[in-house]
Simulated assay, not measured.
Amino acid sequence: MFKNGLIKDIADFYDLTVDQLKILPGLGNKSANNLITEIHRKKTLFLDRLIYGLGIRQVGQETAATIANFLAHRLANTSRKASPEEIFAVGRAITTEEWQTLSDIGPKVAEALFNWFHDDYNYDLLRRLGRQGVTAVWEKKLASQTLSGKTFVLTGRLNSLTRAQAEARIKQAGGQVSSQVSRQTDYLVVGADPGSKLVKAKNLGIKIINEAELLALLS
């Protein structure tokens, strides 16, 4: 759809019509109708997915989750939802220095975020999403900073979380994630088929926890 010029940004998804879609290879009238129906069913988005979908430079899924948690604290209300315009207003009020207080945001990403929220085109983009009925929601319990100052290393395969999800949740809770075990490591999180990091952690006397114990720390 990008190649065909039908979509330039996230708001364009909600403007698509059956007539536009049914001419695409492999899509007939029925498939196009089903796709349009599915798109319009998904107008309530988790805040981190909305942030990621905005295409902000240097903001991947992990960073989007960190940003979403930060914005949710600023947006804090009992309904746990916000319009795109409200999100833009809150984001626009955040300085580059404030962005850099987040665990995985450095100067370049902070500058990219500041510039994004001060671009009138992006304001119009979020206004379009608002007019299309898009709403952002977040979990009742916002991530706290209970792991502030703690450094984690992960090894092995986790069951309920991907590696990226585990790292993002640790960072949202204020922790740091390292790729190597050292004397500065506070916790080694061990999943299935751990590597040599487990041996090194034992030799250094690092606290070793499993996935369930990590989730308990995050809860």
Rank of each mutant, 00 (worst) to 15 (best):
H118D: 09
S144A: 09
L126C: 12
P25S: 12
L6F: 14
L21I: 03
K81N: 13
A65M: 10
N33D: 13
P107N: 08
L154T: 13
G156I: 04
G60N: 02
L147T: 02
E86T: 10
R127Q: 15
Y187W: 03
R183M: 11
V134Q: 13
L50R: 00
I105N: 00
I10F: 11
V177G: 04
E139M: 13
T101R: 05
D12W: 12
L113C: 00
A89I: 07
K42M: 14
H73T: 11
F13L: 15
K108N: 13
F70Y: 03
E86M: 10
K171A: 07
K140S: 05
E213L: 07
Q58K: 12
K42N: 14
R74K: 11
R163N: 06
V59A: 01
K197V: 00
G5A: 03
Q132I: 09
D186T: 04
E98S: 04
A65G: 13
L75K: 02
F2C: 14
Y123P: 14
Q176W: 13
N210R: 04
S79A: 15
G91V: 02
K30I: 10
D119E: 13
L71E: 01
T185D: 07
A64K: 01
L50I: 00
G5K: 03
P84S: 03
G55T: 10
L47W: 03
R128F: 01
D9E: 11
I206K: 03
Q100H: 09
A192M: 12
R169V: 06
L6C: 08
Q100R: 09
I7C: 09
T44K: 11
G195R: 11
W99H: 02
E62Y: 11
T37R: 11
L35M: 07
G133T: 04
V18G: 04
I105M: 00
K22V: 08
L158H: 10
D9F: 06
N33K: 10
T37H: 14
I56P: 00
L214E: 04
V18D: 09
D12T: 07
W116K: 00
A110K: 01
T101D: 05
T151H: 15
K197Y: 04
K30G: 12
L198G: 02
N77M: 08
A136W: 11
T155K: 10
L154A: 15
Q58A: 12
V199L: 11
G55D: 09
K207L: 15
N122G: 07
K140P: 06
L6G: 11
K150T: 08
R41Q: 09
D19R: 05
T37P: 14
F46M: 14
A112V: 04
L129K: 03
A136C: 14
R127H: 15
G174N: 03
N69A: 10
A110Y: 01
V18Q: 06
D104C: 05
A68F: 01
I67W: 01
A68Y: 06
L24H: 01
N34L: 13
L71C: 02
G195W: 12
W99C: 00
L21Q: 02
Q132M: 07
R163G: 06
T162G: 12
N122K: 07
